[in-house]
Design a protein around this nucleic acid. Structure first.
Lengths: 158, 158
DNA sequence: TGCTAAGGTTCTAAAAAGGAACCATTTAAG
DNA sequence: CTTAAATGGTTCCTTTTTAGAACCTTAGCA
């Protein structure tokens, strides 16, 4: 299977990965959450080639994660749409995993303070209904409305 | 910057992406959470080439996400370590985002039932301390212990 | 003994990433 | 008014990765 076909699978993980699952995209998004908005800043901070950055930003705009906002004659910057901002939990979950498992014993490079309660936070995934923390064993999968709604039945057998 | 250098950055997102941030790895992990354990099954379900699958599994074992468990003479299967199982929130957050933003109006392909409370769950990221849902605006970043602990100071200026 | 299945490796072609150089606007400086 | 420099790219070429197919090795079994 070619990579481009992955986005056609009827699976939310596959479709998400088709959008953000390449080498640089999540790093671009990370920096956008930190406040980066302009082409040159992304390029300097990430050190990727202009060619790639240009391509990735274009794709992120196409998908609807960023929008181009003019800030001068003929200049514009890249800002999150709601769709883009909604990726924050993905970023947080990666951060939390990296902090926990890849810190080489040195502790997390950054700490996350929850403004509302003022404490150091560990991002935690919970059930929206009962608020309990969720692990793989706590979850059961069931077919949903989007599963058989088209001809594409090439998804995993769960 | 070459991709291989990204893993050296003193940033948990970058280090996480260096491990799971390529095209196929998270899909392999997704299937592992569904129960897939054997080479041939991964290959059939994902449709990626044996070459790549072999390489990715090897890397996942090296990193410590999978361990090889023998199940016959000279045969073994790939199972999560604790480190690997800890990736579940990353998978859930991607799923939730895809369900919310990429369903093309058809609804989620799969529903997630939280066994403990029996309800359809939307995975939600909360603060470990106060339990409130977290968005990008609620979080403040602070230098942590791992930030200046080595010569590598090439991280983002937050 | 020969067949099949699992779990690969090797080979080649196609696609993507990396690096450097170049270009078109716009603003700023002399 | 002319030149310089910054922004936001594009083009061209080389090096890496992927994709796809074919081949190999070991174990179990008829």
């Amino acid at each position: 299977m070619k990579w481009d076909d992955v986005g056609q699978l009827n699976c939310s993980v596959a479709r998400t990965l088709a959008v953000i699952g390449d080498r640089w995209t999540m790093l671009i998004i990370r920096n956008a959450f930190i406040g980066t908005r302009r082409f040159a800043d992304f390029q300097e901070q990430l050190g990727l080639t202009k060619h790639l950055l240009s391509d990735r930003l274009k794709r992120l705009v196409d998908v609807g994660i960023f929008k181009k906002v003019p800030y001068q004659q003929g200049r514009y910057e890249y800002r999150f749409t709601d769709m883009g901002r909604a990726l924050y939990p993905v970023l947080l979950s990666m951060t939390a995993w990296g902090d926990a498992w890849l810190d080489e014993g040195k502790g997390a490079p950054l700490l996350y303070i929850h403004k509302d309660c003022g404490k150091k936070m560990i991002p935690t995934m919970v059930c929206s209904e009962c608020g309990d923390a969720v692990t793989a064993r706590d979850v059961m999968i069931q077919p949903g409305p989007g599963l058989y709604s088209d001809a594409n039945t090439t998804q995993h057998s769960s």
